[in-house]
Amino acid sequence: MPSAGRTLVLTSVAHFINDGNTWLLPVAYAYMVKAHGMPAYLAGVIALAFAGLGALASPLVGRLMDIYGRPLKLIGIGMGLWALGLAVFGYGVEFYNVPAALAGAVVAGIASAFYHPLGSAALALSYGGSSGYAMGVNGAMGSLGRALYPAISTALFAILGSNYLYALISLAAVSLAAAVPMFLCEEPGLRRGGRKASSSERPDMRAVATLTAVVFARGFALQGISQYVGVVLVSYFGYSFGQSLGNEITFFLLPAIVGQPLFGYLSDVVGRRTLLAGTTAGAALSAVALVATRSLYWLPVFGLFTFSAFPLSLSLAGDLVPRSSTGLATSLVWGLGNTGGGALGPLAMGLLLSSMGLGGVYVMAAVALASAALTVLVPRPPKRSRVPLFG
């Protein structure tokens, strides 16, 4: 298989598993609250530890990429950490050992920092200026994992005698198996040769910082709303907790499987900044329409626009800097920007819902619209050579 095509396949499998793993924890929180009577605030503490460690570790992961230039090998390390984190977390869930669950979430949070900056860096190195579509295809696999893993975990739970430890160990084994080809494959990587970077190779960190701030505001607002979709449906739209609610959540998540490659392709054609601003505004307006009309037809539209950040923001980050700084740039944009905003947004959304009900959605939508408007401050990236999608 050509090098670029092989990279797309390996990173797509890793993206499927990584994003699927991240949605195992919220399902487990519900189980711990229902089966063990865990206070809801403890679920919030564990969730904050997971997201916070992911945000803090991401720049370090990107720096490792820029030093060693072997993104696939580093993704393999991340998959191994996922396996360890899920096994420890599963023990904590099964035996209601909160310190173990917290420790597992911390390791899983560090593991979650690996994929996005490294996967995007690997694709940017392989595809150059046409990485938007490649990242879209790759992102669709992440969306598929995000949509399927909650159902897979509950099915394993039922098959394995209602034992959460066995269910998560099974999925930990999948993560560990995915790490093996990452270490075995040959990758050209990126070598600096020990020479000092020329002025043309130095990253424009002001541009990266501006994009990070824009993506932070986007993640803060849109992840804040999306994490409370289930709460809104149950508390304000009259849904009961059960299969119908699960169906609506799937209805919300599935459109991104098509949307990510679509927006990735369009970003190669019309520009990443334009698409990033347009999808952010589209998500904000569809969230407002959902609350104003209470029509669930707006739910998949909101999901379509919300989960488009991976191919747009990270391909734009890769375009803004020399290839030798791709890892650092993408880790800052995704880790401090998207993940950092996504960690704080749900906390703010919870406070807003408690104090002003559905009016909180309008406040967060206004923040998203401000993010869309501020995208114009991100510099236009230099033109890069294009590489055929499948090598």
Rank of each mutant, 00 (worst) to 15 (best):
L389I: 14
T7R: 04
S267N: 02
L389H: 09
I225M: 12
S324K: 01
V180G: 10
G359L: 01
L389G: 06
V9E: 02
G128I: 01
T11K: 00
G219R: 00
Y149C: 03
L254T: 14
S153V: 15
V301P: 06
V13A: 12
W298Y: 15
P300H: 05
L316H: 05
V45T: 14
L285H: 04
A30Q: 11
G271Y: 08
L358N: 07
S324G: 12
G271V: 04
A365F: 08
L299G: 09
P261L: 07
L48C: 12
K34M: 13
E94C: 08
G264W: 07
A55F: 13
A329Y: 00
V208T: 06
G54D: 01
I67S: 13
E187T: 12
A40K: 10
V232P: 00
M356S: 14
L25N: 08
L86S: 06
L351A: 14
P2C: 13
P261Q: 09
L123D: 02
A134H: 04
F220A: 01
V333S: 00
I75A: 11
T339Q: 12
A292H: 12
A14H: 02
A213E: 07
R272L: 04
I77H: 08
A35T: 13
F95S: 13
A140R: 00
A221C: 08
G54C: 11
R195L: 10
S162E: 13
P39C: 03
I257G: 07
L262R: 00
L10T: 02
G337F: 07
V288H: 01
I77L: 15
Q223N: 14
P2R: 09
